[in-house]
Computed example of a mutant assay.
Amino acid sequence: MLVVSLMVCLQHSAMRFKTRKKLASLSAQQLADIGMTKERQKMELAQASVKGFVVDLLAFFKK
């Protein structure tokens, strides 16, 4: 059961990582469509690194 939980956690973190990477290619109009500001985009892109991935994993385990 622990292994399954770990795999689910890894999948969720990987998906968030990929989504954050894709944010870099969005135009200003697309950002406005999803309700995201340039500042928020920059914050999310800063988390799209290996360090951000690990922090995301650790946050999942704290829940």
Rank of each mutant, 00 (worst) to 15 (best):
M1K: 00
M1T: 01
M1Y: 11
M1S: 09
L2H: 00
V3K: 05
V3H: 09
V4D: 09
M7F: 14
V8A: 08
C9T: 07
C9I: 06
L10P: 05
Q11P: 03
H12N: 09
H12A: 12
H12V: 14
S13D: 10
A14Q: 00
F17E: 04
F17I: 00
F17D: 05
K18E: 09
K18A: 13
R20W: 08
R20V: 04
K21D: 06
K22D: 15
K22F: 11
K22C: 14
S25G: 10
L26D: 04
L26M: 15
S27P: 09
Q29V: 14
Q29T: 15
Q29G: 14
Q29A: 15
Q30H: 03
Q30C: 07
Q30Y: 12
L31I: 01
A32F: 08
A32T: 08
D33T: 11
D33R: 05
M36Y: 06
T37Q: 04
T37K: 06
K38V: 15
R40V: 11
Q41N: 08
K42H: 11
M43S: 11
M43A: 15
L45V: 07
L45M: 14
A46T: 05
Q47I: 06
A48Q: 03
A48G: 03
S49G: 03
V50E: 09
V50R: 00
K51V: 06
K51G: 10
K51Q: 10
K51E: 14
F53I: 00
D56M: 05
L57P: 01
L57V: 07
L58D: 07
A59I: 09
A59Q: 10
F60T: 08
F61W: 13
F61G: 02
K62C: 14
K62W: 15
K63N: 12
